[in-house]
């Protein structure tokens, strides 16, 4: 009865949300019935309810000869993105917040967003120009006498993780900082004044007022980022990778694309995708529970 009473009270909000709820049900939940092909040997054009193979597609993935290499690359690239790519926008937002010259602040802020709107195709081409054996970096190092022969930044696997993490960081940092800047903007200015009265310096204000003020946002985004721990990228690897770097660039998504989608093994691709999603969901639930217990902040 309580629910009904509440619904009646909030009916206008519910009615306004109705189209969106329908949209989510139709486009985000309804297609999930297709996940059953993960447990079949599905052949395009044939029925969705036949040829059951149980967990064979999942087992096959774990038995792939390249399984450990793919998992290592996926986890390392994801962790690098998480450890470097997650705090970087927070730091940028804190720094921008400290800039007092409005024109300068706005300019830097706008410039930092631009890379987000550049496609990976263009980014790859920029990286080739910079890091190729005839690229600007090699040219500079050779002219300065630091190296005799060019360094094969894009041709040797050992550089790949650093390059892809830097590329991701460069592309995402500005855009990701927007949300933190808006969270910072929401902090009561009087708190800063009180802090100054109490003798806090710039770093003190950041540490004792700004960071606690945006803690809920940070925790929320961190929990969501954990859900994507197995999403280490796709187009970046396809565009920047080469046969010589495969041992370092092949991740779950590129592997599934090559051996699932391109060979028409949709069941296999779906099984791996489902596995990834389940791991992501589990991590989100665990992190959410932990955060609720330790920080009293959660997303649900």
């Amino acid at each position: 009865m309580n629910y009904l009473r509440r619904f009646s009270r909030e009916r206008q909000i519910w009615l306004l949300s109705l189209p969106i709820i329908l949209w989510v049900l139709l486009f985000a939940y309804f297609p999930m019935y297709g996940l059953i092909i993960a447990f079949q040997n599905y052949i395009p054009g044939q029925t969705l309810f036949g040829n059951w193979v149980g967990f064979d597609n999942f087992i096959r993935f774990f038995q792939e000869p390249d399984f450990w290499m793919i998992m290592r690359n996926t986890i390392v690239i994801s962790l690098l993105n998480l450890c470097i790519g997650f705090p970087a926008p927070i730091i940028l937002a804190l720094l921008l917040n400290e800039v007092k010259n409005r024109a300068f602040k706005k300019t830097i802020q706008s410039l930092s967003y631009i890379p987000y709107f550049i496609s990976w195709v263009v980014v790859a081409s920029i990286l080739f120009t910079l890091l190729g054996s005839d690229g600007i970096i090699n040219d500079l190092l050779q002219r300065l006498g630091f190296i005799q022969e060019p360094i094969l930044f894009l041709g040797e696997g050992k550089y790949f993780w650093a390059i892809i993490t830097s590329g991701n960081l460069w592309k995402e940092i500005g855009f990701s900082s927007i949300i933190y800047l808006s969270a910072i903007a929401g902090i009561d200015r009087e708190q800063y004044e009180a802090g100054r009265v109490d003798g806090l310096g710039r770093f003190g204000l950041i540490w004792h007022i700004t960071l606690p003020g945006i803690r809920a946002t940070i925790v929320l985004l961190f929990i969501l980022a954990l859900g994507g721990i197995l999403n280490a990228g796709f187009e970046q690897q396809l565009l920047l990778g080469s046969p010589t770097t495969r041992d370092y660039h092949e991740v779950i998504d590129t592997y599934v694309y090559r051996f699932g989608v391109q060979l028409g093994n949709y069941s296999y691709g779906t099984a791996v995708g489902l596995m990834k999603s389940l791991i992501g969901l589990t991590l989100v639930v665990l992190a959410n529970r932990l955060s609720k217990r330790l920080m009293q902040t959660s997303i649900f």
Binding site: P65, P243, R246, R258, F259
Partner: peptide, 18 residues
């Protein structure tokens, strides 16, 4: 054998270059 063949092809591309 299609998957095996594809896996070997991919392996060769990398291994030959290496």
């Amino acid at each position: 054998l299609t998957i095996k063949n594809q896996q070997i092809e991919e392996l060769i591309k990398t291994g030959f270059a290496k």
